[in-house]
Amino acid sequence: MTIEDANPSSTYAKLLGETAKIDWQDLERFFAQGKLLSVARDLDLVSVAEAIANDDSAVVMQWLSSGLVARMPGETAADYAARKPELWAVVVSPWVCVQERA
């Protein structure tokens, strides 16, 4: 564990406190507005939100180009609507970052 891991930034701590379990039906309007970002399960949801909040474009672009973060695809939205999986979300205006939890 590094010192950074032991002492998260104030932005990370704030976003962590704002992260919550949410139902797909509560996210549908953000999907319809094109403001929903899907975050891969192997990324830390709060770290992604922090990078967006801090405008860390190099890291965000790397995630986007690798497909680890993406605007919610229609197929994924339909899957979530059908399955109703456990989802966690955090808002980094204008985006809502969402991640399925196993």
Rank of each mutant, 00 (worst) to 15 (best):
D55P: 09
L68Q: 14
V96H: 07
D55W: 01
A58D: 15
V92F: 04
A82H: 11
S47F: 01
V92S: 10
A70S: 14
A82S: 13
A51G: 07
K84R: 15
I52H: 05
V48L: 00
W95D: 06
E50R: 08
S66C: 07
A70M: 10
V59W: 03
L68D: 13
Q62A: 15
G74T: 03
A49K: 02
A58N: 14
V48P: 01
A49E: 00
L64Y: 10
A81I: 08
N54K: 12
W95H: 07
Y80L: 08
P73F: 06
Q62I: 06
S93C: 11
A82T: 13
A89Y: 06
V69S: 00
P85C: 07
M61K: 15
W95N: 03
L68E: 10
V90K: 03
P85K: 00
W63M: 05
A49D: 01
A81P: 04
W63S: 03
R83N: 11
S93N: 11
P85R: 04
A49C: 07
E86G: 07
Y80C: 08
S47C: 04
V91N: 12
V91R: 14
K84L: 13
A77W: 01
A82M: 11
V92T: 06
G67M: 02
D55Q: 12
K84N: 15
G67I: 05
I52G: 01
V90S: 00
S93W: 10
V96S: 05
A58I: 13
A51S: 12
V69R: 02
D79K: 15
Q62R: 13
A70N: 10
A89W: 07
A89V: 09
P94I: 02
P85T: 02
V60E: 00
P73M: 01
E50K: 05
A70Y: 05
A78N: 14
V96P: 09
G74Y: 11
A89N: 12
R71S: 08
L87N: 04
A82K: 15
W88T: 09
V48A: 04
S65Q: 14
V96T: 15
T76F: 05
V46I: 13
S57A: 10
V46N: 03
V69N: 02
Q62T: 12
E75K: 13
D79G: 07
A70F: 05
A89R: 10
L68N: 15
G74R: 08
